[in-house]
Design a protein around this nucleic acid. Structure first.
Lengths: 103, 103
DNA sequence: TCAGGATATGTCCGATCTGACATCTTGTCA
DNA sequence: TGACAAGATGTCAGATCGGACATATCCTGA
């Protein structure tokens, strides 16, 4: 299993290495996770493009460095709501959000 | 103030009729609320297109009629996460979600 | 090497969300 | 009318989220 796939499963709360790995995520679950991963990547791009550290980004978003890290990793404790609001908070547009979702 | 605008503000938790009404939502807040409203409309379209009642849709989504109603009204207790998962759960695609977001 | 900045990981608790239930309103048809 | 289906609204308890903190790991330059 490649890293991206593993990260995706883990962000969905799966523990890689158990039989669960082989139980299917439904197509919907998978589509949803893909969106989260794409939004997370978009957030990181927004931040890096602006030469911000996670600490600086956290300040702008009224959040914390650890949460920014989790967002960018599409951690399972991070919602799509938070990702979208954060992308917007770093100057992203609705179009950028939509682009991530279809990515 | 027209109904749509009022619904939008109320879904954001504002109480229409107080001074808060005149305090600006930031552009980001407004963009986010617009997305929610558009996703809510998309959800309703998906349901109606399939000739489902809210009760039937709730069953498919493993939710309840009251929550479906709140989703379609972009109630402030409803997250974008739930809206997106519900649209997908009624057979919607990522493209439909993206279209709603740029609507 | 190692020091320091940047990022990742684990945990906690107050805040928010969600399914469920009850109840109310609305629309329609006889 | 009134009866019934559909939808809207209010509330609650359990579940999940999110900022914060502590700490660990990863880079990079000297």
């Amino acid at each position: 299993m490649d890293r991206a796939k593993q990260a995706k499963l883990e962000s969905a709360g799966w523990v890689v290495g158990t039989p669960k790995e082989f139980l299917n995520l439904s197509a919907e679950d998978e589509a949803f996770i893909d969106m989260k991963v794409a939004l997370a990547a978009t957030l990181r791009e927004r931040r890096v493009d602006q030469h911000l550290s996670q600490v600086e980004a956290a300040k702008r978003l009224h959040s914390s460095q650890s949460r920014v890290a989790k967002m960018e990793l599409a951690d399972k404790t991070v919602t799509v709501d938070l990702l979208i609001r954060s992308i917007l908070g770093l100057g992203g547009t609705r179009e950028m959000v939509a682009a991530a979702i279809t990515r």
